[in-house]
Design a protein around this nucleic acid. Sequence first.
DNA 1: ATTATTTATCACCAGTCGGTGACATTGGCA
DNA 2: TGCCAATGTCACCGACTGGTGATAAATAAT
Lengths: 208, 208
Amino acid sequence: MNASIEPVEGKQRDRAKTHEAILSAAKDVLAAEGFQGFGINSIARRAGCDKQLIYRYFGGLEGLTEAIGADLATWISDAASAPAGQPATYAEWVETLLASYMAALRHNALVQKIAAWEISEASPLVAQLSKARSMALGRWIAKQRGDLLPPTTIDAPATNAILIAAAQHLILASTTLGGFSGLALANEADWQRAELALATIIRKVYAV
Amino acid sequence: MNASIEPVEGKQRDRAKTHEAILSAAKDVLAAEGFQGFGINSIARRAGCDKQLIYRYFGGLEGLTEAIGADLATWISDAASAPAGQPATYAEWVETLLASYMAALRHNALVQKIAAWEISEASPLVAQLSKARSMALGRWIAKQRGDLLPPTTIDAPATNAILIAAAQHLILASTTLGGFSGLALANEADWQRAELALATIIRKVYAV
DNA sequence: ATTATTTATCACCAGTCGGTGACATTGGCA
DNA sequence: TGCCAATGTCACCGACTGGTGATAAATAAT
């Protein structure tokens, strides 16, 4: 019961610590090397433990992926900064929401790799992460939502899906290609240009 | 010299045929299994020949990828239907161009997998294909271009990159996730909804 | 008919992968 | 003390990967 006896607790015989080390290593591997390097051996190497422990504590890659998914439940709530003020129009709301989403995704390599995984392969592994990611996103949007309504002449769900898809694709392309379709996306000025164009689209399409 | 002696020419000792079989198998593997299954062994299996011949005739995966890139030079010109009529406005031009691009990409699994590869990994292999793909796209757009100019108040390159990114992402997501961000993309009606929303965006953002 | 060259096949290498069973070590409990 | 469960380590398995050298078979040139 008394767990405060160990003097140094260096790195031996601590299941909780090993558990955490494995989970952290798994996220690191996925964020750094992408889903291609997401394997038992690679994760065990980075965690500095035997791969057998991954099977024991998580039940292999599946259970480990599940744990990552659970860990992902609040990724955007934690990353996105609080809204500065109440938006006055639906267009303003979409604009700030999309900007927050882009900022959060741009600084989260793990979620970027998951997003890339989603559109590259349809495996049960990525399905878990995909579900966790979209649910976290849905909760976050619902929480931010006020009583603003889009113009009834516009298919808002489809339009917003297009905007999110564009933002996501630009971010993913920027890390591997450095840009997309002639639009450079390397420095902050490039991103401001892209976000300005997005904001212009939003304002024009949701103009009242 | 005389190469018309062989009576049946079944499947033996024909370098040109083997060459073509390998190239075709490589494209098939990439289109069917994605860049994950794009390997020497898998391609040789599908081509029905020894993998040694891939090294001999193409110089390994690199040369083979280069050959695929060269083969890709006209993918969109071949796929996209000729423009029905001359567009009257810049918005119309962008609208028909984007619709053609989406139709061509939706029915070309190979290019889809290459696009997914581009945003998943930054390897020299995919760089070749990426270059070939974007150059083919650029040539096609330049050929379609008339003397129409966008409104000077709009950042047209950035806006168009956003539109293409959205279209591309929706198409890639549809094949693996069946939709994106709550927008189903399974049947033709779903796609018409998405294209209508895209067309609305284009008309509003490029309105004169 | 006898060489040469091209075309294709085979056997093998070292390395990695996911996965598993046996073993060693430690700490707590009776 | 002895026991037992928890924790960690090691060795191994079969299968696959990219890559290469040697060899066989068929065609072309002499």
